[in-house]
């Protein structure tokens, strides 16, 4: 019983911490952030299983977290607000070559992060970007300035 309660608490605590860490722990994860996320998971699992390291207890904990995750995923499909709270919304970082400073600052992103994503599309400066979008999964999509109408490309 305590394993289930701690697993539920641990799941939502991790969700909160990862969410307020901004979106960088997603697709833009650096090696250090990768270590941080594993460290947090390791600490949570210690409290979840406690002294009872039996296969039964660990199986219950894994099943509980899996069930929770599936339930939350289902709830997100039913409520856009819940989806926005849990995953956030896409954010425009660059619009028509203009960097959106408020969003960049709020998401703690550097211009180099956007340029790094744009280079993979063959765009070397902000003038070549029509839209740079920080997606909900942490990836940056680049839409190049259109040479002709209808030739926009996206990339995550």
């Amino acid at each position: 019983m305590s394993t289930i309660l701690v697993a539920i608490a641990g799941y939502f605590l991790m969700m909160l911490v990862v969410r307020v860490l901004t979106r960088r722990p997603g697709a833009q994860m650096t090696l250090f952030e990768f270590v941080i996320v594993f460290l947090m998971g390791g600490v949570i699992i210690l409290a979840t299983v406690g002294h009872d390291r039996s296969v039964t207890n660990c199986t219950i904990a894994v099943m509980m977290v899996g069930l929770l995750h599936r339930t939350v995923a289902w709830a997100k499909t039913k409520s856009d607000t819940l989806g926005a709270i849990i995953d956030g919304t896409p954010l425009v970082l660059v619009r028509d070559g203009q960097v959106q400073d408020e969003v960049m600052h709020g998401m703690r992103l550097a211009k180099e992060d956007v340029l790094a994503a744009s280079r993979t599309k063959g765009v070397h400066d902000f003038n070549g970007i029509q839209y740079a979008i920080l997606e909900r999964n942490g990836g940056i999509s680049i839409i190049k300035r259109e040479e002709e109408p209808g030739t926009g490309e996206t990339e995550s």
Partner: peptide, 21 residues
Amino acid sequence: EDSVPKVDNAVAVGENLSFQR
């Protein structure tokens, strides 16, 4: 013709800046 959804000739990305603030 265009794979990117648009509203008022601007890309509709679903941004919600007031929520984000």
